[in-house]
Amino acid sequence: MVDQPSRQAVHDVLKGIVARILQVPENSITEDSRIMDLTLVESIKLLRIAGRIERTFGIELDQEVLFRTGSLGDITDEVFRLCRQEQEEAA
């Protein structure tokens, strides 16, 4: 069984994914950063972010989470919750 990643680990990975796809420095993204407010955000890039998150964590992410959810912290909480749910279902 794979260990459950910590919330901080999930946050760090998400931050890296967002930074790479949007081509912004990681240090410009904070817990309170709204993805929709970052530079160079387009719908297609949000879909790429969602796809990368799903592949990285092995979860199914509601695409709306990126469009309706405010901050990176909110998205982190949702991904962390889905990871825990997946692990519980696999046990």
Rank of each mutant, 00 (worst) to 15 (best):
P25V: 05
R68N: 14
I49H: 09
T56R: 06
E89F: 06
L82I: 14
E86F: 08
D77T: 14
D32C: 03
M1Y: 10
T69L: 12
D62R: 11
E88M: 11
L38C: 07
P5N: 06
L40D: 15
S43A: 10
L38N: 07
V41A: 11
H11N: 08
M1N: 03
R34T: 07
T69C: 13
S28P: 02
I21C: 01
G58A: 10
L14D: 03
E26Q: 12
R34I: 12
D74I: 11
E60K: 14
I75N: 03
L40R: 15
R84F: 08
L66I: 06
I75L: 14
D62W: 15
K15W: 01
I21T: 11
T30M: 07
E42R: 08
I75F: 09
T76G: 04
A91H: 14
D74Y: 04
D77F: 10
E26H: 03
P5Y: 01
G70S: 02
L46P: 13
R81D: 10
Q23N: 15
M36Y: 15
A19Q: 02
L14C: 07
A50C: 10
A19T: 05
V24Y: 00
R68M: 10
P25Q: 05
I49C: 04
Q87I: 14
R84H: 11
R52W: 04
V10C: 08
A90C: 03
E86K: 12
M1A: 11
V2T: 03
Q4A: 13
F57E: 08
R7P: 02
L47R: 07
E54K: 02
V41S: 06
A91Q: 14
V41Y: 14
L61S: 08
T56P: 08
L82T: 02
D3V: 07
I59N: 03
E42P: 00
D37G: 03
F80P: 01
V13Y: 10
R81P: 04
S43D: 07
F67W: 12
Q23G: 08
D3T: 01
D32S: 10
V24R: 05
L40C: 12
V18K: 01
H11T: 14
E64L: 13
F67H: 05
Q63P: 15
S6F: 02
S28I: 05
Q63I: 15
P5C: 00
L22C: 07
Q23E: 15
I44C: 00
F57T: 04
V18E: 04
V2K: 03
G73C: 04
V13F: 08
L14T: 11
L47C: 10
R34Q: 11
E31H: 09
